[in-house]
Amino acid sequence: MSQVGLSVQAMSEAIVVDGLMKRFGENTALDGVSFSVAEGEVLGLLGPNGAGKTTVVRILTTLLLADAGRAEVLGLDVVREADQVRGSIGLTGQYAAVDEYLTGFENLEMVGRLYHLPKAEARARAGELLDRFDLTDAANRPAKGYSGGMRRRLDIAASLIARPRVLFLDEPTTGLDPRSRLAMWEFIADLADGGTTILLTTQYLEEADRLADRMVVIDRGTVIARGTADELKAQVGGQRLELTVRSAESLPAMVELLRPLALDEPQADEQTRRLSLPVSGGAEVLAEALKRLDGHVREIVDVGLRRPDLDDVFLTLTGHAAEEAAPTDQPADEAVAAGSTR
């Protein structure tokens, strides 16, 4: 019964991942990951470094064999029908895989030929994509001289040459400057509008918020949350009361004063001199808080209520922040987790 249900579901799903397990020596990189992506959908696969995002992408793109579990792309099994899978996907990895000795045009033509496009079509597509990714001026220069952003654009162009129905973008904007990142976001949004199914991994929550229809959050090899950005935010809870103080020394006292109002443990950050606590209710909570802080009002720089963003979601779900810089307070954990994608 369930078998029938699964295969019917597989018809309308572009990607199905079911119970994937993968170990690298002592490290468990994936511990039973399951999710699916509908055709035409953009799914954001989120998680801190070493959570297993890249491992999932590598299994789906036939680069790595899972120890257990099943994965299908467009109804094709990634192990048994690997070659057909390769014919219908595009992959842009974490590090721009372009041949630096070839020109931009030659790179695209080569990849087109290796997708078995006829020569004329490969060349036509190459020209088209160079134009679309603003690389026409650099088309005949070896990629060695390209900037990081240009290489990344060329890499994405290469993965699009055979018009794949499913595209895998593994941290497409990591290491890009803010302007290149914005441009990349526009390109990705265009692709999504064109109906391409996209699996996007990222550690930038803003990126996922902006591009993805739905998100799957993984940490240490398991899915810890899934849903739309709004659903995830709702999961964390309504409002947050935030205040910034003049001096970190006054934080502990304020935590004690405000604790009765908090739905969960207040979070105090001495470096940013900021205090954040989940609360319910609106302006009356704010008024109540200020009343409690009566004697300390001079120490407050800024106070307000705000809706949670994805960073709060991350912090609440995983106990640590998403971006690279943040988990420095748990270096040992991070090293072990990062080792697992190797």
Partner: peptide, 13 residues
């Protein structure tokens, strides 16, 4: 090292 083998291995070649 440069990730080109990854690219080639993801292609239907």
């Amino acid at each position: 090292q440069k990730g080109l083998i990854d690219r080639f291995r993801s292609l239907p070649m």
